[in-house]
Design a protein around this nucleic acid. Sequence first.
RNA 1: GGCCCUAUCGUCUAACGGCUAGGACAUCAGGUUUUCAUCCUGGCAAUAGGGGUUCGAUUCCCCUUGGGGCUACCA
Length: 504
Amino acid sequence: MNSVVRTRYAPSPTGNLHIGGARTALFAYLWAKKNNGQFILRIEDTDKTREKPESWHSLYYGLKWLGIDWEEGLAHPDTKESVGPYGPYIQSERTEIYAKYAQELIEKGNAYYCFCTSERLEQMRQDQQARKEPPRYDRTCRSLSADEVAQRLEAGEKHVIRLAVPLSGDLIVADLLRGDIIFHLADVDDQVLMKADSMPTYHLANVVDDHLMNISHVIRGQEWLPSTPKHVLLYQMFGWTAPIFVHLTVFLSKKGGKMSKRDGETSLFAFRDQGYLPQAIVNGIAFLGWNPKTTEEFFTMDELIQRFDLSMINTGNPVFEVEKLQWMNQHYMKKLSVDEAMFVLRELVDSASDDFSDAYADYLSWLSELPQAQQKRQWQLACERSKTFWEVVQIWKEMMHVPELDVAQLVWKKSTPQQTRDILEKLTDFMTTLPEESYGAQELEVSVRAWIAEQGFGNGDVLWPMRYALSHQAKSPPPFELAEIIGKQETLNRLHNAYQNIHI
RNA sequence: GGCCCUAUCGUCUAACGGCUAGGACAUCAGGUUUUCAUCCUGGCAAUAGGGGUUCGAUUCCCCUUGGGGCUACCA
């Protein structure tokens, strides 16, 4: 038995790190850290046909971005080097190891060579389906004589190695969350362990590596539960103690079914590009399937490590909805100083995909050129109205590029065109006299309100058309904030243009 | 089809077998505001159905139904 807690995230590099994978990694990481153990990143690249080169990058930097760190495993996504005492941690570099253990099983009679062609297997499965039988290997090669096997191997015939599953009996899988699950061995297929290309399948490689790397808790998605009896069998055949199994839930989409790319972008970097903060994502996914049983909602990574408990994870699959994540993200955005926000923006410019990157760059350069005091104010205004950084940019764009002026809307509901035109003209004159330096939102509000009182106008008579003249929109930030953002010259232009267009 | 997992408000969830089943998001209403947003106050909203066990069941057991996963020389 291991006294040290060692967990791993063991993705295969077949696609981008997605939000569900990130949660699996997070839970494994939290559990290791909570117990002062180690978290390992192992890459299961045994299917070279499905491998996507760019996914190494996504896996590596995705986890780093979230603040999930590992002391053993993949050390660099480009060189594919790994670090740690149980290396290499890249399965394609461990093929001799798997071959050796597969051989051991053959010698013990726990595995056998199979020469069936994929065409025959395909035909067999079709026939089984037609007869409404469960599709599975018919064990033809399991009864081959030793001589025949030797002969066909000698002849260089293509072959795989299959697990010789006992024909009867029960097998208990102990899952930390779900308790003991009984499987009937008669239902378990003779799984391929070594493929014809000498690569191991997941089942063999996973068991061998988890044992050799001293993994104490196998924390993985629920999709692995049905094949766990095969893994338990392998541990027994090798005479090894099995690790503790923890099968996590999967994220469902609101439309039903496992959340996938079809339900919109589910990759972690898509969320990053949209302007979600890593701390919001971590906080958000941690609460999908787990909670600290208090009413607190916000936790730092360190707090999560302290509070986290594997045995408190829920077993029902949660639906992933973005609304709560947005709320959390806004919360974290509001806590950012403008300097921190600019740091995040700079990172987005560097790392986000092209369209996003360009837009963030535009906004960042505009923000950078403002005087410091205004930057702070701008940031406050922006995150009051935005759930994400991407929304910040969208709102800014709208303020800088106003839509067509609808003259009818310019007139407040309780006012008249005549009065509106008159007021706007006077307001323009007044604001012309204000120095550039007083175009801060607070100062403007004070002076304009004083002017309104002095003139004896109603607030709505002035402020509605003023705001509409500046934004050309029925819904927008207050006029003073708008004036501050677009500056004195543009403010006067828009006011002038507005009343010029009111024809009585 | 077979095997396995699973089931509390729309969503995420809380509730030693024991109060009017609690909170958050979303939503709705009110307040603040020229509008929007923010903020504050309040409201709506759930134990899938049926059997047991028990003085008592959201909680334990069984069945049904619903949801999900797996069923490859993919992971």
